[in-house]
Design a protein around this nucleic acid. Structure first.
Lengths: 141, 141
DNA sequence: ATAAGTGCAAACGTTTTGCCCTAGC
DNA sequence: GCTAGGGCAAAACGTTTGCACTTAT
């Protein structure tokens, strides 16, 4: 089934139990800058919790995104990536190697646009998903 | 396997044969404004070509995107959509019903950003994928 | 004790593939 | 006649779900 709403700001109630799985997932995600996919997170936490399942990883990533503890980074035409850094920033993805890097959000971008767009299209609560791509310094060779 | 490059501007050689399947797919895509997914395109062309297969639809959509005859619209967290209108414009997607609408590209958006970003990140040929979301007039009720 | 959370395996929706057949050139 | 392209079925991929078991509260 198709899910249309990938907005992460609908905060849901915080989890009721504190589990080792959750702790490790969040820890690992916060200690890297690599914006891993669910599968990468699974590989990372498996070193500490060899019996953890993918389902648990997915369930917790989803929950953490909805409670605002992590950020989801939808990758057009690729698997979802995750970011333990929830500060407001952009991402730039290398078209060669696929790696995602942070971009500080201090530029004159997408600022006045959503309101203007709402007026012109009749849409409510307009948001803008934006992702930069390019060829990273490493891949320039 | 993961595909990182969803850029549609790497024009590949034009197809060698003209087939009925190709004609119908392109026709149908050009006659609607609804930005259908591959499955929707399949349903559309099946009325004229009941024996066509999904594989053919996917193969042709990919080829047409790479030869610049159609546009791919990656939908974050949803199936790829397609647009027979290849003129330069943005899209806005309703978070309630999932429909995609056109937005004219005449706003002061993403203009000077890529160059500046290149300087600041060391990336080459920076591009910006941008997609707006909101609640469409119909879904406001 | 209870119910939230886990692991496992199976299912899901989307997209791709291999193989053999069909049909444009 | 040659080979690009098609149909079919199966596989691949990322993700979700049902269910019985475990564990934090």
């Amino acid at each position: 089934m198709q899910r249309f709403d990938h907005n992460q700001n609908h905060s849901r109630p915080a989890p009721l139990k504190s589990t080792r799985q959750r702790q490790v997932i969040l820890e690992e995600l916060r200690k890297v800058t690599s914006h891993p996919t669910a599968d990468k997170v699974y590989q990372m936490v498996r070193k500490q919790l060899p019996r953890i399942s993918m389902a648990t990883v997915y369930r917790n990533l989803e929950m953490m995104a909805e409670t605002g503890q992590i950020q989801r980074i939808p990758v057009p035409d690729g698997p979802m990536s995750f970011d333990g850094d929830i500060s407001d920033h952009h991402h730039i993805r290398c078209r060669e190697c696929g790696r995602i890097f942070d971009v500080p959000k201090d530029m004159r971008v997408d600022v006045a646009v959503p309101e203007e767009l709402g007026l012109r299209t009749g849409f409510d609560s307009v948001e803008c998903f934006m992702q930069f791509t390019g060829v990273c310094p490493d891949c320039k060779k």
